[in-house]
Amino acid sequence: MRKISYLLAGVLAAYGVVAQAQPYQPAMTDLEIPDAEGERNLSGFLWYPTYATHPVTYDFESEVWVGNKVVKDAVPVTQQFPLVVLSHGMFGNAYNQAWLANALAQRGYVVAAISHPGTSTWSRDPDQTRQLWERPKDISRVIDHAIGSSDFARNVDPDRIYMAGHSLGGFTAMELAGARYDTAGLKRYCETQPDELTCGILSDWKIAQTPEDRVKMEADLSDPRIKAFAVFDLGGTQSFSKTSIRQIDRPMLVLGAPIMNSGLTLDIESRALVAALPEANTLYIEPETLSHFDFLGLCKPGGYELLAKVEPGDEVICSNGGAVRAAKHEMIIEGVSRFFSNS
Results as ranks from 00 to 15, higher is better:
residue 89 G to M: 03
residue 41 N to I: 02
residue 184 A to T: 13
residue 108 G to M: 11
residue 135 R to E: 03
residue 58 Y to S: 14
residue 278 P to Q: 13
residue 174 M to D: 04
residue 48 Y to N: 03
residue 194 P to F: 07
residue 327 A to Q: 14
residue 158 P to Q: 07
residue 283 L to H: 07
residue 325 R to K: 14
residue 90 M to F: 15
residue 224 P to A: 15
residue 300 K to P: 00
residue 68 N to M: 06
residue 225 R to Y: 09
residue 49 P to F: 07
residue 140 S to A: 13
residue 266 L to D: 10
residue 4 I to T: 12
residue 57 T to A: 09
residue 186 L to P: 02
residue 243 T to K: 13
residue 266 L to R: 08
residue 165 G to L: 07
residue 301 P to T: 05
residue 60 F to H: 13
residue 46 L to V: 15
residue 85 V to P: 07
residue 313 G to T: 05
residue 139 I to F: 12
residue 129 T to N: 10
residue 66 V to M: 12
residue 56 V to L: 14
residue 256 G to D: 00
residue 107 R to H: 11
residue 78 T to P: 13
residue 20 Q to Y: 08
residue 170 G to M: 09
residue 220 D to I: 10
residue 3 K to M: 14
residue 49 P to V: 01
residue 303 G to M: 01
residue 46 L to Y: 03
residue 93 N to G: 15
residue 10 G to A: 10
residue 161 I to F: 07
residue 223 D to H: 07
residue 136 P to C: 03
residue 128 Q to F: 09
residue 288 E to R: 14
residue 110 V to D: 05
residue 156 V to L: 10
residue 244 S to A: 04
residue 256 G to M: 03
residue 276 A to M: 11
residue 233 D to C: 04
residue 294 D to S: 02
residue 112 A to C: 10
residue 116 H to M: 02
residue 322 G to D: 12
residue 62 S to W: 10
residue 135 R to N: 08
residue 263 G to H: 01
residue 232 F to S: 09
residue 104 L to H: 05
residue 70 V to W: 04
residue 321 G to K: 01
residue 105 A to P: 07
residue 103 A to C: 05
residue 27 A to R: 09
residue 187 K to F: 09
residue 57 T to F: 01
residue 209 Q to G: 01
residue 260 M to E: 15
residue 76 P to R: 03
residue 277 L to P: 02
residue 313 G to Q: 03
residue 126 P to A: 01
residue 47 W to Y: 15
residue 169 G to M: 04
residue 23 P to E: 03
residue 130 R to F: 00
residue 211 P to V: 02
residue 217 M to V: 14
residue 128 Q to K: 14
residue 127 D to A: 12
residue 67 G to K: 10
residue 190 C to M: 04
residue 304 Y to P: 03
residue 262 S to Y: 00
residue 236 G to Q: 04
residue 206 K to N: 14
residue 232 F to R: 04
residue 340 F to E: 01
residue 73 D to N: 15
residue 110 V to C: 09
residue 2 R to G: 00
residue 91 F to P: 04
residue 131 Q to C: 00
residue 46 L to E: 10
residue 225 R to Q: 06
residue 136 P to L: 02
residue 212 E to G: 10
residue 143 I to A: 02
residue 164 A to M: 15
residue 1 M to Y: 12
residue 116 H to K: 05
residue 96 N to M: 08
residue 23 P to G: 06
residue 194 P to R: 02
residue 311 E to W: 02
residue 234 L to E: 12
residue 290 L to G: 01
residue 141 R to L: 00
residue 274 V to F: 08
residue 199 C to G: 05
residue 25 Q to G: 04
residue 321 G to V: 08
residue 124 R to Y: 08
residue 343 S to N: 07
residue 263 G to M: 01
residue 321 G to S: 05
residue 302 G to W: 04
residue 197 L to W: 10
residue 196 E to Q: 13
residue 87 S to K: 12
residue 317 I to V: 14
residue 100 L to F: 14
residue 33 I to P: 08
residue 156 V to R: 00
residue 224 P to K: 12
residue 210 T to H: 09
residue 321 G to D: 06
residue 184 A to H: 14
residue 240 F to R: 05
residue 146 A to I: 01
residue 223 D to F: 01
residue 332 I to T: 09
residue 320 N to E: 14
residue 67 G to R: 06
residue 280 A to N: 13
residue 325 R to Q: 10
residue 192 T to C: 02
residue 242 K to W: 08
residue 308 A to H: 06
residue 98 A to G: 11
residue 99 W to Q: 02
residue 287 P to C: 06
residue 290 L to Y: 11
residue 102 N to V: 01
residue 283 L to S: 11
residue 203 S to K: 15
